[in-house]
Design a protein around this nucleic acid. Structure first.
Lengths: 219, 219
DNA sequence: GAGTACGAAATCGTATACGATAACTATGGC
DNA sequence: GCCATAGTTATCGTATACGATTTCGTACTC
């Protein structure tokens, strides 16, 4: 979405494989055979190889010498690491964005959050997840530090491949989440100081992580 | 240093080019011609190309289609972005590490800091910088989250290429820095809570950034 | 029947080759 | 003397080819 899909074949391969991972066509553990992907995309193996390496650098695939590439795993430990890191960076990005968020964006976020509430009533976890991403995007999209923003996006991409294959509602957590969203919006509207916003955003994510881990442990 | 130097030629090229950038042989803006590097290393262009792309993903080089690769720039804006992000991640990593740092490591860090003080007296900025990295490594090396640790290392690498070509003491800042190091160690020794340590570590970095920017503006 | 060793197939890793694109240079017109 | 344009060179981008490594299956031995 944010990437230039066309251009070099390498870019093309990168975008195509990434999309398949993020949307869940290639599930974790899936074996990425260079020659096969190359044939599918109608290109040779060299650009595919390059694309795979880029995805490796982003943590979406694991590449083993003389063995091949597989879509990165989803074990709870990995999820913990990613979420913990993301909570910290996203918290900071949100705090940096906050002063730059105008009332139009706030209204948009509030509308998204209302839709999320609907999803809870109609039990639509897939849409809920998509909206959740939209909501948070509004919060951090004005972050003036592009590096930080890039890291946030990478984190979301990693989580996307996880969610696409394992998502389910953690009991009660989604309801909490929607409430916390509203609280966050009010903090931003009232021009709360950066530390307060950062802590709130971070705790919001950490709570989701804790809920997931508690459930993962109980299975 | 932390990378497997040998193995595939791609790895080899990656390590070689990275080393040259970090140590300052290839200064920012330096034009990386694939064929030339390939010849220097005695390999073909394909693995070199792959290495360059990996370095691009880490932000050490910039790659323009049909134009070529150059070592990433060092303008104050870029420095700001990197340092700001690093201060946040490193602060968190240090806080997570703190409970795991034993007295031996503390003593080691204190010795390093003493040496840094010496460097100030004998005016040895190069060594000072190297020791500074050592000091901080002790603080965050026990971070239990490998993703976070990886991001910290990447940040340091980016800064290394900057420092190697532009380093000079910011008046008074280095002295401040050494004092803050000692304060950090005392916080860790006294088992201060995670938030306190995180804030202190972050402010320590931010102060360095501010000092640099103030100087950069005045030139 | 289980384990080991050998061989075949699959896949990766890299070199070479050639087409495509952009930067540079020189030449001609004004 | 300066600008525009065509031709040249340098460099990148990708396809193809082949050697290297691993993995899997099969046969042989104990």
């Amino acid at each position: 979405m944010t990437e230039t899909a066309v251009g070099s074949k390498s870019e093309q391969a990168y975008a195509a494989v990434k999309a398949r991972i993020v949307e869940g066509t290639y599930t974790p553990g899936y074996r990425l055979v260079l020659a096969k992907i190359a044939e599918d995309l109608g290109v040779s193996v060299v650009p595919v190889r390059e694309a795979i390496r880029r995805l490796e650098a982003e943590g979406l695939v694991k590449f083993e010498r003389n063995v091949g590439a597989t879509v990165s795993g989803i074990d709870p430990t990995e999820y913990l690491y990613t979420m913990q890191t993301l909570s910290i960076i996203e918290g900071a990005a949100t705090a940096l964005s906050a002063p730059l968020i105008d009332s139009v964006a706030i209204a948009r976020a509030r509308a998204v959050n209302a839709e999320m509430r609907d999803c809870l009533e109609h039990f639509d976890p897939v849409r809920f997840t998509a909206l959740n991403q939209d909501f948070h995007s509004v919060l951090f999209e004005h972050c003036p530090n592009p590096h930080m923003l890039d890291l946030v996006h990478r984190g979301w991409n990693r989580l996307a491949s996880i969610r696409a294959s394992t998502f389910r509602f953690v009991p009660g957590r989604a309801q909490e989440s929607v409430k916390e969203h509203e609280a966050l919006l009010q903090l931003i509207e009232s021009n709360a100081d950066a530390d307060t916003i950062e802590q709130a955003a971070r705790r919001h994510r950490s709570a989701t992580l804790d809920a997931y881990l508690a459930q993962a442990k109980s299975i």
